[in-house]
Amino acid sequence: MRSIYGTNARKAGPLLAMALLACGALAGCGDDPAREDISAAVAVPAISTTPAPPLPRISSGAPTAPKVEEPPVGSIPQVSSSERIPMPLDPYIISMKDLRTIDIAQDVGAALCMKSLGFTEWTAGTVRTWDPENDKEYDFLEYIDPVSAAQSGYPRTQPDPKLPSPKTPADDRRRPTGEEMAAFNGSASQTSTGRAIPEGGCAKEGARGIRDEAIELPVDARALAVNSRISARQDSRVKAALAAWRSCVEKSGLRYPDPVVLRLNPEWASRKADTPAGAEEKRVAGADATCQREVNLVGVYKTVRVAYEERLVTAELEKLTAARPILEAWVKNAEAVIAGAG
């Protein structure tokens, strides 16, 4: 899940984002405080299959959030399915399809700006400010079926094929000139032919065609969702479930502080979805998934996260309600930009 602001941070990719146990307004997905993807790298230890010394102190990379009172929760259901669990903030979050539409429209608008400055070879794909690999919804912890994990390794999430695609393929990009980049990013005030470059360059001009700078978004629901993930990850009930998970996986010779770190071991973290998992990944994934299910780790985490989101919705309901039509207007503007350039 990512924020509606900026694009640069998404280039770091979803695998690392998951490892951080936090994204975005969480440091964003990077270039904007409301973005949710990456804030720091995480050290991944090698797998131990033999008796090991005491568990090392390994940072999961999770940002530190202010201590808050933990919300009460009712009964915690046993999660045994990968079916998505609805969250209280869902009604206020626009879809990945809409976010992709905004992304494409910003590049289209920037290209129109560049052409108006005389850079006729510039297309919406010359510099793409977003990466389709980051347009995936994910959480720190999702249910993994033990049988499937043992047979196929860790699941690989593919981008939604229904998401809109730009007309200019990524592999059609050419290397822009220095003058073009100065006009694109706004580091120059005019072109060599004397044409005035808009403030912030054509990259920002592309965004202006979608978002009215005079209208400030009251709150970013995706950023609040990130906050709920951070708070849930630091909750004592989730920490207790993680401790139980660690005790369980140690029986298989695995000494890791967190399932996300284990899942992102470099031996298999970069494996493509169409590449079969190796024997060791299958063994580790099977043990990991079995222990997660045994201690109901996902059930505890999701239940606690729901409680934090309910609190956020109550506190920010007026702003969330006001933000939704603004976001919908951005999407309509983006659709118009794309249609007009067609």
Rank of each mutant, 00 (worst) to 15 (best):
G6M: 03
A9K: 04
A9G: 15
R10A: 13
A12D: 02
G13S: 03
A19S: 14
G24S: 13
G24N: 09
G30M: 10
G30T: 08
D32T: 12
D37E: 15
V42P: 01
V42L: 12
P45F: 10
P53W: 13
E70P: 03
G74D: 10
S75A: 15
Q78Y: 12
S82A: 15
I85G: 02
L89M: 09
D90A: 09
Y92A: 02
Q106F: 09
D107G: 06
G109C: 06
A110N: 02
A110R: 01
C113G: 03
W122F: 12
W122S: 02
E137N: 11
D139A: 14
D139R: 15
F140I: 11
E142Y: 06
Y143H: 09
P146C: 06
S148V: 13
S152P: 00
G153V: 03
T157M: 08
T157A: 14
T157P: 01
Q158W: 07
L163H: 07
S165V: 15
S165H: 13
P169N: 11
D172V: 07
R174C: 00
P176Y: 11
G178T: 14
E180A: 11
E180C: 05
M181E: 12
M181F: 10
A182N: 09
A183P: 01
G186S: 12
S187N: 12
S189N: 13
T191W: 07
S192Y: 05
G194R: 07
A196S: 15
G200C: 08
G201E: 00
G201I: 04
E205V: 00
A207W: 00
D212M: 00
D212A: 01
A221G: 10
R222N: 05
R229F: 03
A232L: 09
A232T: 06
Q234Y: 03
Q234R: 10
R237I: 12
V238G: 00
A240H: 12
A241H: 06
A241Q: 01
A241G: 04
A243D: 14
C248N: 10
K251Y: 07
S252A: 15
D258F: 02
P259I: 05
N265G: 13
P266H: 07
R271P: 07
A273E: 11
A273G: 08
A273V: 12
A277K: 00
E280G: 00
R283I: 05
A287E: 07
T290H: 07
C291T: 06
Q292I: 04
E294F: 10
N296H: 03
L297K: 03
L297F: 06
V298N: 01
K302A: 11
A307I: 12
E309A: 04
E318T: 01
R324Q: 08
L327R: 02
N333Y: 06
A334I: 01
I338Q: 00
I338V: 11
A341C: 04
